[in-house]
Amino acid sequence: MENTSLSGSVLDLINSDHVTPATRNALQNRLNQPPITEPKFFDEKQFKRLQLTCNQLIIRLNKEPIDIAGPIDIRLANGITNGWRYDDLPNDGEAYRLFLTGINQTAEALFDHSFETITTEQRDAVLRAVQQGEATGPAWQNLPTDRFFEELLTEVTEVYYSHPLAQQQIGYTGMADQ
């Protein structure tokens, strides 16, 4: 069955009889989910900043319309966790909000501008400082920055690579499960 039905796109594959109904439903639900424009957990400014962060962390070569910040907002609004957290981090929602405040403080400290108005190279530098535990700003007093960055990056990566269009990019065809 390998690849023979993947002459078109992953969308053709999902609609083919190589895919079980349970798998097709799961993937179509994800594909059909419209991007979140009105966040429930974050305020609009925080949400925009999270979207900018996701755009730094994930490269979309073909501009795939994959919403990453939206599923994170939904998870936090519904109080869902992945089953554990580092004991020295606050709860997930509080940690995300501290992070979003913190990266702006670091942007101001390093570049005299808000996170929204600096260049993408400068945003990379801010995030790199957070990842390396070297970010400056009062928000970081209550957040081990490198550890939260690991959590953030993991969630962003998992959301992105769960999307069939991202999976197609890496040559994955395992959704053909029958």
Partner: peptide
């Protein structure tokens, strides 16, 4: 009938009540 070949859709298999890891 219920199980998809999809990691994210199968998250329900795990004990997702939060545990603290120190």
């Amino acid at each position: 009938e219920d199980f998809a070949t999809d990691e994210r859709a199968q998250d329900f298999l795990f004990w997702n009540d939060e545990r603290l890891s120190a």
